[in-house]
Design a protein around this nucleic acid. Structure first.
Length: 753
RNA sequence: GGGCGAUUAACUCAGUUGGUAGAGUGCCACGCUUACACCGUGGAUGUCAGAGGUUCGAGUCCUCUAUCGCCCACCA
């Protein structure tokens, strides 16, 4: 439907479901979600939700904030564009479908790659629709005609284009490195996908005998099973205890390997015995130390977490079993020098919480230094701004200490690595075209594509330009890149924000946005993170069906400032529903007094600002209050202080307009000659105030505004109100009257009059 | 080990150019008056974590301390 009957009487009480029923499709059908007019563009790229399930409060929060900015700028005459999309969520996406299969007693290997991917696509098609419905129900005024999925052909081609260029410039390379491996997910992970958790275990002290039989060195370890892969023992070069031993050799028990004693600055002589076992194949420190001293790397573990053939008698065992076996061996041999309880942090898989193993593996990496330097520079110069400011430091700290990015994943769901290998001549190349049939060098048809897929954040990093059609030089790309504000959670600064920045600079030569606005995390009323396992999740759609979308949005916006976590208590949403009811009834009152009244219009056709001799003191006071509120709210929104702007408008409408102005007007409206000024002022103040409130509470304001004298067919495209005249003297005078009135009422209450 | 944030009324939180402490919820008393009981009027409750400093003046700026929380980092 494209029209909405607004002739129906307003009921006695505000009913959110009634008010919200029609407006979304009204706006969308009229095309108001697409860029309007010929003003300067204002573009926000929506963080594409993962297509792994239902939307949660975090999504409701970003919708509320981004929609506020978009609606505000649209009313200010900017060509506002909010670009919606969804993310295929690589490892998480594969995970949800595997879990579904597991309920049928199947694994992805039972289906095979092709059938499994079909299954994933079914899921994605189904949940993309759900997510779109949910964004719709939250009132997101985004442009659905430009909706994209990260696995759509366009964005997929952008991924291959970027990959190929980086590959040809040797900024992407393939190499054998020590990487984080999740034995459960059976894939490599980037550093960011590893979550360190405190674990209480044991630390064992193991004695390694010197080769010449003159003694032993004791090392401490929390992972005894890795000793099977030790290729040295290291001490600090200045450590007097070991000075004479550096350069000598030890005999590693069990495997009977001859390993050197080396000196390295990285060893902390204060810790333990001051001697460290070095296992380059299973520890990141040791990997580096191994490189410095040219030590061999001996891997003792398979990718499934079992011990391999290098583990001697423990080959084939699970690592935990091998750990107990190694300790037992040392004990029996009289070489166990101690065992203490010990708390330390271990890396776990972000997705499944399995302990991550550092393993040597051949993976694809992005060389980060050349990309990170310009990305750090823009933050230093202020070209890129973070709100709140403090996140600049967090961002720079990461950029300045960046490691190469492991981008290959041993998964099936995701963008396949566009690298081909020729069996005939050994040539290897990257391709922008999805399919290759022959070797580009020798023409042989015996070619194979790399089986792995890319880290999901690789495609997310290109999103601000791939969503606009890049690498094609589309009209949209010319008009709407770069965007303006990136609004997202502070938990994905590194995962996503940083990557959009360096990819944007690299491939577009320009930042994708100049401001990064970071919101906090939505917690429950007790301050705990909402999670399904805790059972404290508030479903946004439950809340909106109870109190209305407007109430939830207003609550999320006003509950906390930028970057601050917010606790969502239901009674707060209820209070804001009551606010919606308040303005609903306020409007009913005003409307009842507008019947038959002459309302003056200005040149634009809007309700005219009341002026002249007929104005009473109270009129001038409320006009001053309104104009000051307009100025203040605009300034606060411009400064990203949405919570402050929201509260200010709330205060104005309730405590000033309803409590004082409307009450004072009642007397004047009874019939003596002064009614005209009051009516005009009521209509003017309410109409303008609804405009102020619209970005915060889109539905109820539209519903009410439609019934007031106005110009245009929707509040969504009504101009943002500009402050009119202030009457400072009258303002002060009425403030004094308010104070006096309060004192009188107080006295009356005390004396029971 | 570094870095950041929080600490304001019983509870949950606002308070950005330093100027006599605010809201919502809860509590108490009264109240159907051209909208609203999803309401109105009035009320009670705060050494703004603690100590010191800058200032005519500090919740707001500086230093230190305490408690809680978060992020980063390879403590074997």
């Amino acid at each position: 439907m494209t029209t909405k009957a607004v002739t129906a009487e307003l009921g006695r009480a505000y009913d959110p479901s009634e008010v919200e029923r029609h407006w979304y499709s009204y706006w969308n059908d009229k095309g108001y979600f697409q860029p309007q007019g010929d003003g300067e563009p204002f573009v926000i790229v929506m963080p594409p939700p993962n297509v792994t399930g239902e939307l949660h409060m975090g999504h409701a929060l970003f919708v509320a904030v981004e929609d506020l900015m978009i609606r505000y700028q649209r009313m200010k005459g900017r060509r506002a564009l909010w670009l919606p999309g969804a993310d295929h969520a690589g490892i998480a996406g594969q995970w949800v479908v595997e879990r579904e299969l597991a309920r049928e007693g199947l694994t992805r290997h039972d289906l095979g790659r092709e059938a499994f991917l079909e299954r994933v696509w079914e899921w994605m098609d189904k949940y993309q629709i759900r997510i779109r419905e949910q964004l719709t129900s939250l009132g997101a005024s985004c442009d659905w005609t430009r909706y994209r999925f990260t696995m759509d052909p366009g964005p997929a081609r952008a991924v291959r284009t970027v990959f190929k260029q980086l590959y040809d410039e040797e900024l992407i390379y393939r190499g054998e490195r020590l990487i984080n491996w999740c034995p459960r997910c059976n894939t490599a992970l980037s550093d960011l996908e590893v979550i360190h958790r405190e674990v209480t275990g044991s630390i064992w002290e193991l004695a390694y005998p010197l080769e010449d039989g003159s003694g032993e060195i004791v090392v401490a370890t929390t992972r005894p099973e890795t000793m099977l892969g030790d290729t040295a023992v290291a001490v600090h070069p200045d450590d007097e205890r070991y000075k004479g031993l550096v350069g000598k050799y030890l005999i590693l028990p069990i495997v009977e390997r001859r390993i050197p004693i080396i000196a390295d600055e990285a060893v902390d002589p204060e810790f333990g015995t001051g001697a460290v076992k070095v296992t380059p194949a299973h520890d990141f420190n040791d990997w580096d130390m191994g490189n410095r001293h040219d030590l061999p790397r001996i891997s003792v573990m398979n990718f499934d977490g079992t011990m391999n053939e290098n583990a001697g008698p423990f080959a084939g065992q699970q690592s935990g079993e091998a750990r107990r076996g190694v300790v037992a061996h040392f004990r029996e041999a009289g070489l166990l020098r101690g065992e203490q309880s010990y708390t330390h942090s271990v890396g776990t898989c972000e997705r499944c919480e399995t302990v991550v193993e550092p393993l040597i593996s051949t993976q694809w990496f992005v060389k980060m230094k050349p990309l990170a330097e310009p990305a750090a520079e823009v933050a230093r110069t202020g070209e890129l701004r973070f709100v709140p400011e403090r996140f600049t430091g967090v961002y720079l700290n990461w950029m300045d200490n960046i490691q190469d990015w492991c981008i290959s994943r041993q998964l099936w769901w995701g963008h396949r690595i566009p690298v081909w290998y020729c069996q005939a001549c050994g040539h290897q190349w990257a391709s922008v075209e999805e399919q290759q049939t022959t070797c580009e060098k020798c023409g042989s048809a015996e070619i194979e594509q790399d089986p792995d897929v890319l880290d999901t954040w690789f495609s997310s990093g290109l999103w601000p330009f791939s969503i606009l059609g890049w690498p094609d030089e589309t009209d949209d790309l010319k008009q709407y890149y770069p965007g303006h504000v990136m609004e997202t959670g502070h938990d994905i600064i590194f995962f996503w924000v940083a990557r959009m920045i360096f990819f944007g600079l690299k491939f577009m030569g320009e930042l994708p946005f100049h401001t990064v606005y970071l919101h906090g995390i939505v917690r429950d009323a007790k301050g705990e993170r909402m999670s399904k396992t805790k059972g404290n999740v508030l479903d946004p759609l439950d809340i909106t069906s109870k109190y209305g979308t407007d109430a939830l949005r207003f609550t999320l916006i006003t509950a906390a400032g930028p970057g601050t976590d917010l606790k969502l208590a239901e009674d707060r949403v209820e209070a804001n529903r009551n606010f919606a009811n308040k303005i609903y009834n306020l409007t009913r009152f005003v409307l009842s007094n507008l019947e038959g009244a002459e309302i003056a219009r200005d040149e634009q056709g809007d309700v005219a600002e009341p002026e002249g001799e007929a104005l009473a003191l109270v009129d001038r006071w409320i006009l001053t209050r309104l104009h000051r509120t307009m100025a203040y709210a605009s300034r606060q929104i411009d400064n990203y202080q949405f919570h402050e702007a929201g509260r200010t408008i709330y205060e104005f409408l309730w405590s000033e307009f309803a409590d004082w102005y409307v009450e004072a007007a009642k007397v004047r409206l009874r019939g003596d000659g002064d009614a005209g000024a009051a009516t005009q002022t009521l209509a003017y103040v309410l109409e303008r105030a609804l405009r102020l409130l619209h970005p915060f509470m889109p539905y109820v304001t539209e519903e009410l505004w439609q019934r007031l004298p106005h110009k245009g067919d929707s509040l969504i495209v009504a101009p943002w109100p500009e402050p009119g005249r202030e009457y400072a003297e009258e303002f002060e005078k009425f403030e004094a009257i308010k104070e006096a009135t309060r004192l009188i009422r107080n006295a009356r209450a005390e004396h029971g009059v």
